[in-house]
């Protein structure tokens, strides 16, 4: 196993709210290896974006990283001074966001902004422009010379996101964090951007952390995936294994709740009942238990930890899908209400 380039250990990010503290990220640990493409999937409120923002200490007010370590090349990013972390941002770890419109300065020319990204980290001014043009070509912006002079509003959404990626790559970072980079784009444009990211990952060896809610995006781009729910990682592992043999009921249900464009039969979607948990008062025990058909008594009061379920795959569940399949008939399950498969309902809990 190679040495990880980034190690996140027990990261906790919280927000002060009216009625208490929102634990947006609650004890997240993972590694990122050089050149790999890691997906972080989850629904809104799962903490996936906050995890990404915490790595670069970009958590918006009133959020606060309360504990944990983010080790990059043997230094803890959470212990650096403001000046030092600014040096890391954009040079070693770059980030692109969902909305390229608001990430670009509307009154400056696009090419100039890419130049700036390089100059900010002390590259010589001489070759900035030629390197920028090279980058714009690399992200497949057609007619790069004339686009260089365009203002951001003159570019389409897809072009702006390409320009953002060019800025991100300006200093050949070791890691590129992409926070829902294609969510605001049309599918045909999304496909192009994903293909571009995949190629850059392979050609330049830049490690990519892909934050997304879209399982299809993960399936196409990533080699490893973390599944987050209510501020915690509930399952992680190689993409093929997670998609083929998920062990956490949340992952399993999520994969069955998405219609597939290549489906040849009409199968009723397997929704996840209930609503996302209120992070001000997260459920006791396993946070997924109020929505889980396979829960057992233990799930109500004991919090499961991640444990190995297969080579490189870990899940945090007291039951696991293997048992749910064998003992609760998960594959043939029709009633998907919480506790339906296991027969465990709150009234019966001592």
């Amino acid at each position: 196993m190679p040495t990880p380039i980034l190690q996140v250990r027990d990261l906790r990010t919280q927000f002060a709210a009216d009625g208490g503290v929102v634990k947006a990220v609650d004890g997240v640990s993972f590694e990122l290896y050089p050149g790999e493409s890691l997906g972080i999937v989850g629904e809104s409120g799962s903490g996936k974006s906050m995890t990404a923002l915490s790595i670069l200490r970009l958590v918006p007010d009133p959020g606060r990283i309360v504990s944990g370590q983010v080790l990059f090349r043997d230094q803890d990013l959470l212990q650096l001074t403001g000046e030092e972390i600014r040096e890391i941002r954009g040079r070693d770890i770059a980030m692109i966001f969902q909305d390229p419109q608001s990430s670009l300065n509307p009154v400056l020319r696009t090419g100039f902004q890419v130049d700036e990204a390089m100059l900010a980290h002390g590259r010589p001014k001489r070759d900035a422009r030629s390197r920028t043009l090279e980058l714009l070509k690399k992200v497949r912006i057609p007619a790069a010379e004339s686009r260089y002079k365009d203002f951001p509003h003159q570019l389409s959404g897809g072009m702006r996101q390409r320009a953002m990626i060019a800025m991100g790559l300006a200093n050949a970072p070791a890691i590129l964090i992409a926070d829902e980079p294609t969510t605001a784009l049309d599918v045909t444009v999304q496909a192009q951007i994903l293909e571009l990211l995949g190629d850059l990952n392979r050609e330049l060896g830049t490690a990519i952390v892909m934050i997304t809610h879209n399982m299809g995006v993960v399936a196409g781009l990533c080699s490893r995936v973390l599944v987050m729910y209510a501020g915690e990682i509930v399952e992680q592992g190689p993409v093929e294994q997670i998609f083929e043999n998920p062990q956490h009921p949340y992952t399993w249900s999520l994969l069955r709740s998405i219609p597939r464009v290549d489906a040849l039969r009409h199968e009723r979607l397997r929704s996840i009942e209930g609503i996302a948990p209120d992070l001000l008062q997260p459920p006791s025990g396993c946070r997924f238990h109020p929505r889980c058909p396979f829960r057992i008594e233990k799930c109500f009061h004991d919090e499961p930890r991640l444990q190995d379920v297969a080579m490189g795959q870990q899940a945090a569940c007291w039951v696991m899908m293997k048992r749910a399949r064998e003992e609760m008939g998960a594959d043939k399950l029709i009633d998907i209400r919480p506790g339906a498969a296991s027969g465990v309902h709150p009234g019966e809990i001592a």
Binding site: G158, T188, A191, E195, V218, A219, F243, V261
Partner: peptide, 27 residues
């Protein structure tokens, strides 16, 4: 056809074998 090919399928084995019909230019 291009629209269909652009939609990612949530299955890594299938998705990696699919070919994108790339559309040139913008809408």
């Amino acid at each position: 056809k291009a629209l269909l090919s652009a939609i990612p399928v949530p299955d890594p084995r299938v998705q990696r074998g699919r070919r994108l019909v790339e559309l040139t230019g913008e809408i």
